[in-house]
C-alpha cells in the first residue's frame, strides 16, 4: 500500500505525534467516561488501547475523531483539530459497530469503496486509483472472493475484515480500530494482526482497542491501559503486569478465577 497524501499540507508523520490528548475529560450527560486523560501516540507504531467494557475506549475514539467534544483538555491529530484532520483525510476509523443494518443492500466491494470517498469528487465516482486501492484492500484482508457478497452475508470476522479493508482503502496516516477482535474467529484474528503489521511497515500509525489480553504482546509496540483514566502506558512488558491487570480488569479476572 502506498501513501499518496500528495497535498502540500500533509504533515510530516515523524515530526508531530499522530494523536495527542492533554488532560482530556469527556463523556455524556450524567456520565464521565474519560477523566484527565493524557496520552500521545508514537509515529509508525501500533498502540493497543486496553481496558474492560465501559472503560471509555469507544469514547476515546469519538474524542479523537471530534465526534465527542471534551469538557476540558485538548485533542490533536498530527497537530490539527480533529475536525481538520477528518477533512484532510489524516485519520481512518474502523467502528465497533454493534448495530449495523445487516439487511442493507450493499456488497463488500461497495463497502470498501466507501473508504475512497475522501479521494473522490462531487459524485464519488471511482477512478482507476480508487479501484486499485479497493483491490489492494480486498486482497490484503483476504476478501477477494467475497466481494459480491452482501455485507449481511458475512461471518462476524469477515465483516470486521471488510470494515478494516474500507479503512485501508482510505489510505490515511493514522488508523483507529475499535475492538476489531471482538467476536472474531482465530483465522480472522491472525489475518487482521498480519494486516496491521504490514500497515505499520508503510509508516502508518495505529491505535487499536481491545479487551482481550491474549495477543496484545504479539500485536502492539505500546500499550495504554485505560479505566476512565490512564492507569499505565509503555511497552507491553511494562504495562501487562499482574498488578496492573488486577486494577484494570479486577472484577473480570477475579471471576475467571
Amino acid at each position: 500500500m502506498t501513501h499518496e497524501h500528495a497535498e502540500a499540507d500533509t504533515p510530516d508523520p515523524t515530526a508531530t505525534p499522530p494523536a495527542q490528548l492533554l488532560e482530556v475529560t469527556a463523556g455524556y450527560p450524567g456520565v464521565t467516561a474519560l477523566e484527565g486523560v493524557t496520552l500521545g501516540l508514537h509515529p509508525g507504531r501500533i498502540t493497543a488501547l486496553l481496558g474492560a467494557n465501559g472503560s471509555g475506549k469507544s469514547t476515546l475514539f469519538s474524542t479523537l475523531l471530534g465526534l465527542v467534544t471534551p469538557r476540558s483538555g485538548t485533542v490533536e491529530i498530527f497537530g490539527r483539530s480533529p475536525h481538520r484532520a477528518r477533512r484532510d483525510n489524516l485519520v481512518s476509523f474502523v467502528p465497533q459497530h454493534e448495530a449495523i443494518d445487516m439487511t442493507f443492500p450493499v456488497s463488500v466491494e461497495q463497502v470498501v469503496t466507501m473508504g475512497r470517498y475522501p479521494h473522490m469528487g462531487l459524485t464519488r465516482r471511482p477512478r482507476a486509483a480508487d479501484r486499485k486501492a479497493v483491490e489492494d484492500a480486498l486482497a490484503a484482508t483476504g476478501l477477494d472472493t467475497y466481494r459480491r457478497r452482501g455485507i449481511g452475508e458475512l461471518s462476524g470476522g469477515q465483516r470486521k475484515r471488510a470494515f478494516t479493508a474500507r479503512a485501508l482503502a482510505q489510505d490515511a496516516p493514522l488508523m483507529l480500530l475499535d475492538e476489531p477482535f471482538a467476536g472474531v474467529d482465530r483465522t480472522s484474528e491472525r489475518l487482521l494482526t498480519d494486516v496491521l503489521h504490514r500497515l505499520r511497515e508503510t509508516g502508518t500509525s495505529i491505535l487499536v482497542s481491545t479487551h482481550h489480553l491474549d495477543g496484545v504482546k504479539d500485536l502492539a509496540d505500546d500499550v495504554v491501559l485505560l479505566h476512565r483514566r490512564v492507569l499505565a502506558s509503555g511497552s507491553p512488558d511494562e504495562v501487562l503486569t499482574e498488578h496492573n491487570m488486577a486494577r484494570a480488569f479486577g472484577a473480570v479476572i477475579a471471576e475467571a478465577g
Binding site: 477528518r86 483525510n89 459497530h97 449495523i100 450493499v106 482510505q170
Partner: peptide
C-alpha cells in the same frame, strides 16, 4: 453512506 453507516460517514468528514 449516511444511511448505511453514520459513524463512518462522520469519521471521514
Amino acid at each position: 453512506l449516511v444511511a448505511f453507516d453514520r459513524t463512518y460517514a462522520l469519521s471521514i468528514g
